[in-house]
């Protein structure tokens, strides 16, 4: 009996260890009492700061890395998705105000030194969806939290070459020219129930990744409840890919060599090496399909 209990303890402990996801180390502790600022342009000097946390609620945003030292946020109302109006139909009623071209934000923390900046862009009741263009220094460590529920809305991340942690839900989430490590935890308030339909990762810049002390950190760690995951890998990429898909299917044109399953065995888990294996790419897509394809 003691042996059984001991064995079960080891198995549960081992399993729980696999349930952990890569997390950044700085605490995100929003202070809601901070005043709401409305501005045509929000600009923050962030050189030397360790981590930037941005929380975007019910607005789409394009995050793009660049060579500067400032975070620059601009509103772009034109980019909001218009409603599809069927032929012969006219507007019967609407309670919405038109979108404006202001950035609505609260600075939650902006400490001197390395602690970092955290700010929130809250949703405004009755206001049409907004859209933001966010320029960030491309080598900064960035955490973005968001919820956007508008059908077809897209959050995008481009040209970022340091750790990126993304938590939230949006119908489409894209990553282009990022070097990882990337942790994407799709869902709301940690409940892991989100409305994401597609997660698309392309032009992965693996050769520029700064591994340093993050040897054990997966290059990509993707968790999604509903969404399809579509990853394009460069031809020369060396990766070990682990896919869990409870209800979805796995499709690929990569030359993957299937690996023997590791203990403990997990149902519907595939592990394969590309080009002899390398940094881990971990995908947990509970209900969506997973597409792994060669970069074109």
């Amino acid at each position: 009996m003691k042996r059984i209990v001991t064995l079960l303890t080891i198995i549960f402990g081992f399993t729980a260890a696999f349930g952990q996801t890569f997390q950044t180390t700085v605490n995100y502790n929003p202070k809601r009492e901070q005043p709401l600022v409305e501005s045509h342009l929000a600009k923050f000097h962030v050189k030397g700061k360790e981590l930037i946390v941005i929380d975007v609620q019910e607005a789409t945003a394009n995050f793009e890395g660049y060579d500067g030292d400032d975070i620059v946020i601009e509103a772009d109302p034109v980019a909001s998705k218009p409603a599809v109006v069927l032929p012969g139909f006219s507007l019967a009623s609407s309670g919405l105000l038109p979108s404006d071209n202001l950035v609505h934000y609260r600075v939650l923390t902006n400490e001197p030194g390395v602690f970092g900046l955290s700010l929130t862009i809250p949703y405004t009741t009755g206001l049409k969806f907004g859209h933001y263009k966010v320029l960030v220094p491309k080598n900064i460590k960035l955490k973005v939290v968001f919820v956007i529920s508008e059908l077809g809305a897209k959050m995008s991340f481009k040209n970022l070459s340091n750790g990126l942690e993304v938590e939230g839900t949006a119908p489409v989430i894209t990553f282009d020219h990022i070097s990882g490590p990337l942790t994407l935890s799709e869902g709301i308030n940690g409940h892991r129930i989100g409305g994401t339909e597609k997660i698309i990762i392309s032009h992965l810049q693996q050769s520029n990744a700064q591994f340093d002390s993050l040897e054990d950190t997966p290059l990509l760690n993707i968790i999604t409840t509903h969404g399809d995951v579509d990853i394009s890998l460069p031809q020369e990429a060396k990766a070990t890919i682990q896919v869990d898909a409870g209800y979805g299917n796995l499709y690929s044109d990569l030359n993957m060599v299937k690996q023997r399953p590791a203990f403990p065995l997990v149902k519907s888990r595939y592990t394969g090496n590309v080009n002899g294996g390398g940094r881990m790419i971990v995908i947990n897509a509970a209900n969506g399909n997973v597409y792994l394809r060669k970069e074109k």
Binding site: D228, D230, V243, A245, N249, L250, Y251, S252, D253, M256, P261, L265, V266, K267, S268, R269, Y270, G272, N289, Y291, L292, R293
Partner: peptide
């Protein structure tokens, strides 16, 4: 029957499915 996004890709059977 493959989804449109899987055109040109092969299905890889997930162990234990």
């Amino acid at each position: 029957v493959k989804p449109a996004a899987a055109a040109g890709l092969d299905e890889i059977i997930l162990p234990g499915r």
